[in-house]
Amino acid sequence: MFLWSLTRIDWGSGLVQARGLASVGQFAVALLRVDLTPYVVSSALRASWVTVTYAFAGLSVALALGLPLGVIGSGVLARRIRSRTLSVLLGRFALASMRSVHELVWAWLFVASFGLSPIAAVLALAIPYGGILGRIFSELLQDVSGPPLRALRASGASEWQILLYGRFPMALPDLLSYTFYRLECGIRSAAIMSFVGLGGLGHQIQLALDDLAYERVWTFLLFLIVLVVLVDVWSTSVRRRITQ
């Protein structure tokens, strides 16, 4: 199907704009002259900080939403089939609705309601990401290995206690690693959302593009790359500590 879709593209001469190629060239070359003057670097630092705080705040709220809904959507707290189906249906439906609207659309909605305030950015990130985290969490909690859970049940544990002593501990490395991955995505999303005017790296990139100052664009892009790499390193070290 993928191959078929490739044939549908018009690979003719209209694919690349005449001046476009030249612009790309200019952009690429600007990397060599990346702007590292103090003023630009300090505004990059400030913008990075804004982006990072949006991402962290957004992911925190996303966790607060996604974790309970994920547990409900996994149905692991229900012992009888009927209540489990109900739990899964409700949870999955709620999570899917949250996910279906892209964060930019949520951002646009919230900016319209709350104006250009940080709340708009945080909620716009938290809702779809909560839906994504919740969906994955529900599957991770279900797919945990069986014998330890059976042993807990045989020791008299309730389904809630089995969640606490069996499912969470065993799923934790994967829960964490997926959350960190989403944090990375969150940083990118927060950067993009700042195009909506909410401050942060995206906003700065937009300003620099408007000025055609490609060297400045690269400064901010490099900061973005460094942020993502830092989160990746942090995620690896936390995961190692949990699973040693």
């Binding site: 014998p147 330890p148 042993a151 002593y165 069996g166 501990p169 065993m170 934790l172 699973t243």
Partner: peptide
């Protein structure tokens, strides 16, 4: 006490 190991490995 089952034959297969059934401890929670992460605890």
């Amino acid at each position: 006490i089952p034959q297969q190991f059934d401890l929670v490995p992460n605890l």
